[in-house]
Simulated assay, not measured.
Amino acid sequence: MTETPDQGQVADAVKGNWVDTLAPAIARPYLRLSRADRPNGTWLLLLPCWWGLALAVAATGFRAFDIWIAVSVALGAFLMRGAGCTWNDITDREFDGAVARTRSRPIPSGQVTVRGALIWMAVQTGIAALILFTFNWTTIGLGLLALIPVAIYPFAKRFTWWPQVFLGVAFNWGALLIWTAHTGALGWPAVLLYMGGIAWTLFYDTIYAYQDIEDDALIGVKSTARRFGDRPMPWMRGFGAAVVILMSMAVLMALPVLPATVALVGIWAMGWHLAWQLTQLDVRDADLCLRLFQSNRTAGLIPLPFFAVAALV
């Protein structure tokens, strides 16, 4: 039987996405498992990598190998986001089946078996490992270490109100990884950039978590959204401020005055976008929360052209 475009579609995927309309029917459940039909998460994983590369190039100069780093990290982000989402759906399959927004995902809906998901996760991780092994040994070590927070994150919502911290630790690892791939060693600017990325994840994933706050309460899943309840704004303002301050410190530590000034304009413009999101936020409106969460792709792209110009001045 040929699958129709709507058959098996995940509830929060965009209608008419490429997976549901163009991908071969046999591949669709696995691509849905990797969230290929919802690419925003891949961007949120990729952007800290590109921040780290752009800041490293601005600080130490461009090398031809940086072209490969920029391209390969995009491929790696797609693969590792897919592998991470697959692992998340394997561990959360019982929870997902009890939540309206997630019960249509491939495992709880029966499109993919747990065994098939494990094989698919191994395939994605293996290809990503081949990319990682093109980098220096320090970067390879950091990349292997990143598997620890990736493995822990799906369980964090079971024991802490702050699972978004674990997501931030995993999702922003690329800032450390790619700085090291370019420079050969980890540096404090990368660490500060990484910490700014964690604050950013706390910001956007708290917004995302408000979509499921009622279902999460019913099934006993914890989140920052449940922790903050109807009073998230002091926390959200703090997260946004931390993004700007920590990323600014990274730039000031890495760059001379003129290029640092250029890069700071981009960071503060990103901060303006985060502030704008808070003026729009209504945590009782799930559709609005999803749109604001998705707008963080734009927020994260804002600093990149400023970092590029900083590398030229």
Score class of each variant (00 low, 15 high):
Phe166Ser: 12
Phe155Ser: 06
Ala185Asp: 10
Trp162Gln: 05
Leu33Asp: 01
Thr91Asp: 01
Arg35Leu: 05
Arg63Cys: 09
Leu47Ser: 00
Pro259His: 00
Ile90Tyr: 10
Pro163Asp: 03
Met247Thr: 14
Gly97Pro: 06
Leu288Lys: 14
Asp282Phe: 00
Trp43Val: 11
Trp161Tyr: 06
Gly229Lys: 12
Trp276Pro: 02
Val191Thr: 03
Met247Pro: 05
Leu79Ile: 15
Gly196Ile: 02
Leu45Ile: 00
Ala13Val: 07
Asp96Ala: 07
Asp6Phe: 10
Ile69Asn: 13
Trp272Gln: 05
Leu33Trp: 11
Ala70Trp: 00
Ile267Cys: 11
Met247Arg: 13
Ala225Gln: 10
Ala254Lys: 07
Ala23His: 07
Thr206Gly: 01
Glu214Asn: 06
Ala269Thr: 03
Trp235Thr: 04
Ala100Ile: 13
Phe78Trp: 15
Leu193Ser: 04
Thr2Asp: 03
Ala13Asp: 13
Thr279Lys: 10
Val165Leu: 15
Pro149Glu: 15
Ile127Thr: 12
Ile148Asp: 03
Val257His: 06
Leu22Phe: 09
Trp50Arg: 05
Trp162Val: 00
Ala181Phe: 15
Leu193Thr: 07
Ala23Val: 10
Leu177Met: 00
Gln7His: 05
Phe65Trp: 02
Ala122Cys: 00
Ala74Asp: 07
Pro256Lys: 08
Gln277Leu: 12
Ala190Trp: 06
Leu264Thr: 05
Leu145Phe: 02
Ala275Ser: 15
Thr4Ile: 03
Ala241Lys: 09
Gly52Lys: 07
Asp285Met: 02
Ala260Phe: 14
Ala308Trp: 14
Leu22Tyr: 12
Pro149Val: 05
Ala299Phe: 01
Phe171Thr: 11
Phe203Ser: 11
Ala56Tyr: 06
Leu142Cys: 01
Val257Gln: 10
Asn136Met: 07
Phe203Gly: 03
Ile267Glu: 11
Ala146Phe: 06
Trp162Lys: 08
Arg237Asp: 01
Gly271Asp: 00
Ala190Ile: 08
Arg284Trp: 02
Leu31Tyr: 08
Ala146Gly: 14
Phe78Ser: 11
Trp18Gly: 13
Asp215Glu: 13
Leu304His: 04
Thr160Met: 09
Ala77Leu: 06
Phe159Arg: 04
Arg63Trp: 12
Ile67Lys: 05
Ser223Trp: 15
Lys222Ala: 00
Trp235Ala: 07
Ser109Gln: 02
Met236Phe: 01
Thr224Cys: 11
Val313Ser: 01
Val57Phe: 00
Gly143Asn: 05
Met253Gly: 10
Ala59Phe: 15
Ala36Ile: 10
Met121Leu: 04
Thr160Asn: 03
Lys157Met: 11
Ala260Tyr: 15
Leu144Ser: 01
Gly110Cys: 14
Ala100Lys: 15
Gly300Tyr: 04
Ala286Tyr: 14
Val169Glu: 10
